[in-house]
Amino acid sequence: MQLEIHNIAKRYDQNRGLAPTSFNVVKGELIAIVGHNGAGKSTLLKMLASWIVPDGGTVIIDGIDLKNRAAIVRKVGFIPEDPNLFDFFSVEYNLKLFAMLNQIPFLRVEAILDEFNLLPFRKTKVQALSKGLKQRVNIGRALLSDPPLLILDEPTSGLDFEMTREIYRLLNSMHDAGKTIIFTSHRPEEIKNLATRIMVLHQGSLIFDGLPGAYFQSEIHEQLYA
């Protein structure tokens, strides 16, 4: 999996958004994107997930342009901060619906239910689940098509300690399985424990891109969390 991002940009009102940004990602990286609120982290991830149409620039995943959505969807799994599931249907229904749309056999749904410890909740309506469980279903859904690139927007936001640890475990196991992962976070310990590379966005611009060691020794980290 090779991700090439060249001058991708998005402007909102009042000059917010993301200035032209370029970087490359290689297979197996686990990248944390950090920055204050409004720094452009979510905007960047949403553009990679085709949720937002960029104003300009190109994104190439394994030689395929992001604009070719039909070809790219199986390569990218996006997990937004707030789980976007059909609340009034069961966990199983949600997974089977997306399996059908992805043309994936239902056996994969069973595997996901098992892997994410969701078997006891398979008939439970999503609206009756805690946020942590919903997030697990959301990650499971994103993994249905086994995409090589996973993008997570603040995956542990609003979760308790237990659920946060569970998400870390899932991220680590997915990383060990060879997946490339990009996630945003506000938690220094999360970044320290998980990331193999850190990128810092500030007011829509990429101001740091390097290894965790270099980041935690830099002034940028101190300024961010001062």
Partner: peptide, 10 residues
């Protein structure tokens, strides 16, 4: 954001 979720399928 259900529509966006559906658009993450082919």
């Amino acid at each position: 954001k259900l529509l966006l979720a559906l658009l993450q399928t082919p």
